[in-house]
Nucleic acid binder design. Sequence first.
DNA 1: CTATGTGAATTTATTCACAGCA
DNA 2: TGCTGTGAATAAATTCACATAG
Lengths: 204, 204
Amino acid sequence: MRYHRIPDETIRRLPIYLRGLLSLSAESRHQVSSQGLAEFLGTNPWQIRKDFSYFGGFGKRGVGYDVGKLIKQINRILKLDVGHKAALVGVGNLGAAILSYPGFKTYGFDISAVFDINPKKIGKKINKITIENISKLGSLKRRKIDLGIIAVPGEAAQETVDALVKAGVKGILNFAPCYVTVPKRVKVITIDIALDLARLPYYM
Amino acid sequence: MRYHRIPDETIRRLPIYLRGLLSLSAESRHQVSSQGLAEFLGTNPWQIRKDFSYFGGFGKRGVGYDVGKLIKQINRILKLDVGHKAALVGVGNLGAAILSYPGFKTYGFDISAVFDINPKKIGKKINKITIENISKLGSLKRRKIDLGIIAVPGEAAQETVDALVKAGVKGILNFAPCYVTVPKRVKVITIDIALDLARLPYYM
DNA sequence: CTATGTGAATTTATTCACAGCA
DNA sequence: TGCTGTGAATAAATTCACATAG
């Protein structure tokens, strides 16, 4: 295989493949062809083969892919194999839902600290984690937490991001419905669930 | 302006523009240039002008865009100007968070019915809406609800989708972490918040 | 003189078609 | 023979550059 820059779209799809492979694995499917995986995921075989080919030979010609091996490889490519500690900031409705969402640990994430600004919430426990004062974000570096999840109102998003960056996080998942600026070394992914709903009527 | 097929990516960005324009409008900004909007949204001016150009002349040369007018136009393009009633299925942690999420009404959505399968929840009220038995989904057509939001476990997603399709919805926002199949006339958008988190370490 | 609107150029991503390996 | 892996062909999206309108 020659060198190729890996398309962003391929990286975006890897977690989808991983999710599907984990489902197959849970059903004790140990082998799958690009055709079979494509049907399971609602995509097409060429796309899957092309995406995998950027990383080298994952499969066996005439046979298909080994599900367990593929899971390991994708986990390594996405750097999920090392495990990641995350801090959640903002324990409103959305924050509480995020905290109890089972999907994160599927990918090796552990929300190990929770912060809020509301004095009534600070000190209380939620999912066995004590809610800390947002002013204590400075402790993240010492606690090896390099990932922040923001579930605060839009008005507070930028200052929360700034505080997280100062605390040394390298990646931020932003649920606040606005654009935030960060230094280039930090990666932000913004999710606004209403945005996706907003384009649904166009297609209906 | 000559005819152009509108790129999917442009449609994906329209709600982002709309969100930004609504913010500007709330700050009493009535005029904005592609440059100014781009900075506000973290994108670039060419992209914005190109996207708008697919729909005709929205701006005034030498001046910029009228914020209010632009909001109206995008709302119309996305068919958000008519308002949409949605039904939520599944009132777990995530469902409850969705129900209280303020972002939906920003785009003219009204979650006007809530369903669950758990007998202990049925009949209870949440956000002033009575939780109904999931077996009553058939009433949606009569109630002019054409949009479904699914927040059930993955195992139940396909059957829930089937029930919603049978009840006549034309669009589905799926929060269950799996691919679901529908007839071509129905549009599904799947959101899995863990998928986005899963590609963050790659960039860190 | 400023900022839009848009063909053309470039870059990026998808699809195809088939060689090559188990 | 069956399914992967990958260059080549095609399609789609982004970026540029500048003519054009207010």
